[in-house]
Design a protein around this nucleic acid. Structure first.
Lengths: 134, 134
DNA sequence: GTTTAATTCTACCTTTTAGTAGTATTTAAC
DNA sequence: GTTAAATACTACTAAAAGGTAGAATTAAAC
């Protein structure tokens, strides 16, 4: 019941960039304690997905490609396959809906809704500032 | 944001045994569509953790070692390391508490509590009957 | 007491996730 | 135009999760 590392890193990276305006991969790696090579792999992915834009060459770095209030956590998680849309029931094997319930379908319904709403309504702007310090 | 396979299987196994009273690994494997060898690995673990007891030899099988209403989902999940107790914040790096917050600490608090309560208050007895059919 | 159907043990293989290494490309500064 | 500091690309390695294989042990049934 946790996010995978890539998703976690992505959120923290976007949050840091948002607070700094622009910054290099080197700075991100050091401040967020994310292995440099792994970090650039993720940032490259974030560029392709248009969350950030890259400035190459000397004095380069990354910037948000949109306003932080327009980047929801849900969007990030979906990009990194954290939500499989349909079946996302806890024990979900095959299709799990109102008719074909998994064992925990009813109990899971409320918390699930709450989490989804939270991820949809939370944007990079809303995140605790300086959370990267932890 | 899903349980790992082992935890899912464990819950479904216990649910099935609960409904059947006693059953063999072969039956569990077939009815729950869990690979036989992987299933027995999990049941052996469930025996050691005293969720079930095994009856060896011919006509053997597994039984719950306690009443189904006394086995909470939380207990199962904790056994399979689904909850790391302390830091379980979404982005949680290092310790994440009221003073040292991860970026999503505040937003995550409510859904997290809701999920934990749900897992603690849900027992094997409460699960949808025949959920294994899916 | 032999057989048979069951659980248990040890060791291995496969897939996915996480992380590393090295080189190529870009571009501002000088 | 050379240099230096940055990102991007390709390919590999390591660790964890998921799954398999085969032989050993147990005990009811006959």
């Amino acid at each position: 019941m946790q996010l995978n590392n890539t998703s976690k890193y992505a959120i923290r990276i976007l949050s840091y960039i948002s607070n700094k305006g622009q910054c290099s991969a080197k700075e991100l790696s050091e401040k967020l304690s994310i292995p440099y090579k792994f970090l650039t792999k993720i940032t490259t992915e974030l560029v392709k997905a248009d969350f950030i834009l890259s400035i190459r060459g000397r004095e380069g770095g990354y910037k948000l490609s949109r306003e932080s209030c327009n980047i929801t956590i849900m969007e990030i998680l979906k990009h990194f396959n954290e939500f499989n849309h349909q079946k996302e029931c806890l024990l979900g094997i095959g299709m799990c809906d109102g008719k074909n319930k998994c064992g925990m379908h009813d109990q899971w319904a409320k918390p699930k809704k709450m989490i989804q709403d939270m991820f949809e309504n939370t944007t990079i702007e809303n995140l605790e500032k300086n959370s990267y310090k932890i």
